[in-house]
Nucleic acid binder design. Structure first.
Length: 707
RNA sequence: AGCGGGAUGGGAUAGCCAGGAGAUUCCGGCGGGCUCAUAACCCGCAGACCGGUAGUUCAAAUCUACCUCCCGCUACCA
């Protein structure tokens, strides 16, 4: 509550969600890291003492599973990714004061210490729970090793999270109909002693905490709902080898193979990484203990998918262990690509390395990602929009203003004319500084960019309005005044834009002959007089040509098509057709046309192929709708030897109560599948949009084969 | 269907959380200007009754209720 505005006289720390050491980085990740980096830089320009820390998230089941599949040690596997991340971030001008990982000694020790404290303070208890166990593989199945049905919404869910349905965090033992994700075997539940963190005891604290939490509104509102629904205690141990051992566990009767749940040690990395920073620069320079245990402004930038961890579990842990609470949680929206969801499996993504390999400057992407939509908003990325943004705002407005002003100044005055800045321009710059300060305090990155861009826009207007090129002869003094103002504006834009385009700002900084790093100066320095002399300036932004965009779009489409492997490609129209036309004509409702029948397949199959299809006559014994699904029905079908459970998409199309007793035809050797958590063991044959059920009309007995 | 986000001039977006002069910015269209500048930049014009309905209020894009539609994730071929 009632937090002071930034800058405060306390140290701040900015963190971003830990990248999970399990795959390549894409612009979805980058948005968060760039956003947090920009915010941290912006804080610095306000004069706030701050540190930007992060680290790789090394533990957890996916790392263990994937490492196992590749036959490598999980530590080695995760470290490979860690190193790659470490190399990638600076290439986007994302500069951490410290970048560690959760498996290093600092984090391991600190995690144990914090858990020990929680335990000693009575926030942890032990309970026997049912843990999924794969009898065939003879091992327990923590988290994502098990899949099943969400007990809350009935969706298919992972062991630790209802990732596809209600997004809830699931406790071990909660998932229904568990199946081992390693072997595909049905899992059984076994009794096992685990440690629980008493989150429920923090209900009151968390409610209050959320009232005072800054950042984005989704990070404040979503957890309120969860609290209202009742907080569940949190199982913080897992039956695995890969992870941080539960402290003091070796001589504990709970067994020595329990490790801490990854979500315990992951956020602690925020603290550990800060600590490592202090260890490197000294506590005089930056004191991690002060920030985390005494007084400090902790700002977490995360993706909106991990709000729960940062607004429930994490603050409860901090409170329970005697640490400071976060001041702000800023949850970013997702990135979509050409209007559709980013999907790594379908290769519908812009990869970090790919972007760099295309030769684009990192600041362009930084600008795009931070200024295209609000932090909380989902932002669409397309190469077209990227081009528009870069060409229009960075090249046309900012770059052009920078270049024309400095070039004019260089040619006529060999630098900054010796005049004083006019009152109008000074006020304008002061206004922009105020806007930036306000934006930072509202966690509004776009606002920062806008303030800078608007100032550049004003610069263009100002130079245009005053036409110094006409004045150099008639009224040289006036001309010098105007250019003096323009150089000042150019400098101010560089300072204001530095959080977003640090490298470009630095270049301009050097072009006007300034020493040192623009990253180190404060906003107010935007009003300081630039050096008297500077060299001929160069252009800082280049246009992206249309051909280039076409090429990039093609590449992207090809890649997606390759990954999707010829799935429905609705959009592949016959080239030059008028796009508008097809759009406007979609309301043709003449549906009874028969010319939309699928063409007959040309490819013939062999008799043997046909024999592989085991099609039988069956009788529907029972039919009921599947809860939560629009069209799916669960059927029990007598196929002669046994009764099969089959899922069919006919709920809307048939009166389910009339189905029992009816004969039908079904493919019985269809591979089993799970839909909405219901296993389907066969495929009912039906024709047409109305799912007209196939059946027999003679005396074919149930179980007879169709041939 | 669940969860999340959204519905504002041709397209994309801001404002809405802290309700008050018919509303932001960018792209595009039209007209004009300038020539210092990366065919850039500047000025002007056209164009939205701010998804619908009902409320609260002196006053609503901005608050409340209901509704419709859209998008993302998941997914309904099994």
């Amino acid at each position: 509550m009632s937090n002071d505005e930034f800058p405060t006289d306390r140290p701040a720390v900015v963190t971003c969600g830990l990248p999970y050491a399990n795959g390549d980085l894409h612009i979805g990740h980058l948005r968060g890291y760039i956003g947090a980096d920009a915010f941290n830089r912006a804080l610095k320009t306000l004069g706030q003492q701050t540190a930007y820390v992060c680290g790789s998230d090394m533990h957890g089941t996916p790392v263990a599973v994937n490492a196992e599949q590749q036959g490598v040690d999980p530590a080695e596997f995760a470290l490979d990714w860690h190193r790659q991340y470490e190399e990638t971030f600076p290439q986007f001008n994302v500069e951490f004061d410290n970048y560690g990982h959760t498996h290093d000694e600092t984090n391991t020790e600190l995690t144990k210490e914090i858990v020990r404290t929680l335990d000693e303070e009575g926030h942890v208890y032990e309970k026997e729970i049912q843990v999924a166990y794969d009898p065939e593989a003879d091992q327990y199945l923590p988290d994502r090793y098990v899949e099943g049905t969400c007990p809350y919404c009935g969706e298919k869910a992972r062991g630790d999270e209802c990732d596809e349905g209600c997004q809830r965090h699931l406790e071990p033992g909660e998932v229904e109909n568990p199946v081992s994700s390693i072997t595909g075997n049905p899992a059984e539940y076994r009794e096992r002693a685990h440690k629980f963190f008493e989150v429920s005891a923090f209900e009151e604290y968390l409610t209050e905490f959320l009232d005072g939490l800054e950042g984005t509104s989704n990070a404040r509102n979503q957890p309120r709902q969860w609290i209202e629904d009742g907080l569940q205690d949190w199982c913080i141990t897992r039956d695995m080898d890969w992870g941080i051992d539960y402290p003091g566990d070796a001589d504990d009767e709970t067994g020595s193979d329990l490790v801490l749940y990854v979500w315990v040690d992951a956020p602690i990395e925020y603290i550990s990484s800060t600590k490592q920073y202090t260890e490197r620069v000294g506590a005089d320079e930056y004191d991690w203990e002060r920030v985390w245990t005494e007084e400090g402004d902790i700002v977490h930038v995360i993706g909106r998918d991990i709000i729960q961890h940062h607004t429930i579990f994490w603050p409860a842990m901090l409170e329970g262990a005697g640490y400071n609470a976060p001041r702000a949680v800023a949850a970013t929206g997702f990135i979509t690509i050409n209007g559709k969801g980013l999907s790594t499996s379908r290769n519908r993504a812009i990869w970090a390395n790919e972007y760099l390999e295309e030769g684009f400057h990192p600041d362009l992407l930084r600008y795009y990602l931070t200024t295209t939509g609000g932090l909380q908003q989902d932002v669409d990325f397309s190469w077209n929009a990227f081009q528009e943004k870069v060409n229009g705002e960075l090249v046309g407005t900012v770059g052009n203003f920078w270049y024309r002003s400095l070039l004019f100044a260089y040619r006529n005055y060999e630098g900054t004319p010796e005049e004083a800045v006019s009152a109008e321009v000074r006020e304008r710059i002061e206004g922009a500084i105020g806007d930036v300060r306000e934006s930072v305090n509202e966690y509004d990155l776009r606002g920062i960019g806008r303030a800078a861009t608007r100032l550049a826009q004003f610069g263009n207007e100002y130079i245009q309005r005053n036409e110094p090129w006409k004045l150099t002869d008639d009224d040289p003094e006036r001309a010098a005044q105007v250019i003096r103002d323009c150089v000042q504006i150019a400098k101010a834009v560089a300072v204001l834009l530095e959080p977003i385009t640090p490298d470009k700002s630095q270049r301009l900084w050097e072009q006007i002959g300034e020493d040192g790093d623009v990253a180190d100066v404060h906003l107010e320095d935007a009003l300081e007089t630039p050096p008297r002399n500077f060299d001929e300036p160069g252009e800082l932004f280049a246009k992206i040509e249309d051909d280039r965009v076409d090429e990039l779009n093609e590449k992207l489409e090809e890649r997606i098509a390759a990954a999707t492997d010829g799935d429905v490609d609705d959009g592949t129209e016959s080239d030059d057709t008028d796009a508008d036309e097809s759009d406007d004509m979609t309301d043709s409702e003449s549906e009874t046309e028969t010319d939309d029948l699928e063409p007959l397949l040309e490819d013939r199959i062999s008799f043997d192929d046909f024999q592989e299809l085991d099609i039988r006559v069956g009788r529907i014994e029972a039919a009921e709708g599947i809860e939560g699904a629009d069209d799916l029905a669960r059927l029990e079908v007598d196929v002669g030897f046994e009764t099969r459970q089959v899922v069919a998409g006919i709920k809307q199309l048939h009166d389910l109560s009339e189905l029992p007793g009816q004969k039908c035809v079904l493919l019985v050797n269809m591979e089993p599948a799970e839909l909405f958590g219901v296993e389907s063991n066969g495929m009912i044959l039906a024709a047409g949009d109305e799912a007209d059920l196939l059946t027999t009309h003679g005396d074919a007995a149930v179980g007879e084969k169709v041939r």
